[in-house]
Design a protein around this nucleic acid. Structure first.
Length: 203
DNA sequence: GGTAAGATCCGCT
DNA sequence: GCGGATCTTACCT
């Protein structure tokens, strides 16, 4: 990977526009233990303040402050008492938005990622799910606000999939605005759960 | 000062 | 498919 990282201007668009453009991109995380690189296969967009599912919906707080800052930085939060999730802050000035990284394929640092994900039975499970993804990369709250063109986190152009392989659907695990198709994934990737490719039943 | 819900994962059935 | 683990955040009284 000798390409230059994507510039901050890449993120200076609404999150629902940036999200599909993140598929196939490569996120590198460099820590004292070593480097892990992840090719993104599934993401979700959150665009506040009118998005009731977004952490930014109720205005700025100590936790979500990074979402209200400039694009091109990481927003990391803790949830369910045991998990971290990482977002990439997006959006034109003044509009809080972010893209949650849900899944990816480990393309470098496989041994290190396996060591962090001891419960994983297959390599495709290493970063299948937003909390597994942060564990595999070694990301925690200390990376909240980290520059995506910085010494720890860097996002490289990678190889985006052809447009016909990009799918979208409802976001996962949230009660509000579940009908908004702001989840994007690459069709045919083993790191994306197959059942998610189908339209969920309505009742 | 108390409480309910949460952008989840894992093991068991 | 279901429920437990585990704790922070935000909101209410």
């Amino acid at each position: 990977m000798s390409d230059d990282p994507l510039p901050h201007s890449f993120f200076a668009r609404p999150a629902p526009e940036v999200a599909p453009d993140l598929l196939g991109r490569v996120l590198r995380c460099t820590l004292p233990a070593g480097t892990v690189e992840l090719r993104l296969t599934e993401v979700e967009a959150y665009q506040g303040p009118d998005d009731p599912a977004s952490h930014a919906h109720r205005g700025p707080t100590a936790r979500n402050a990074v979402m209200f800052g400039p694009p091109g930085y990481a927003y990391v939060y803790f949830t369910y008492g045991m998990h971290f999730c990482v977002n990439l802050v997006c959006g034109p000035g003044g509009v809080p938005g972010a893209v949650l990284l849900r899944a990816g394929e480990v393309v470098a640092g496989l041994e290190l990622a396996r060591g962090r994900r001891t419960t994983s039975r297959r390599d495709t499970d290493l970063a299948q799910g937003p909390a597994r993804l942060t564990t595999a990369l070694g990301i925690d709250r200390s990376h909240d606000g980290a520059d995506l063109d910085g010494p720890v986190l860097r996002l490289f152009p990678g190889t985006p999939p052809p447009a016909e392989r990009i799918r979208s659907g409802p976001r996962t695990g949230i009660a509000q605005a579940a009908e908004t198709p702001w989840r994007f994934w690459t069709e045919g990737e083993p790191t994306v759960s197959p059942y998610r490719a189908h339209t969920p039943r309505r009742r």
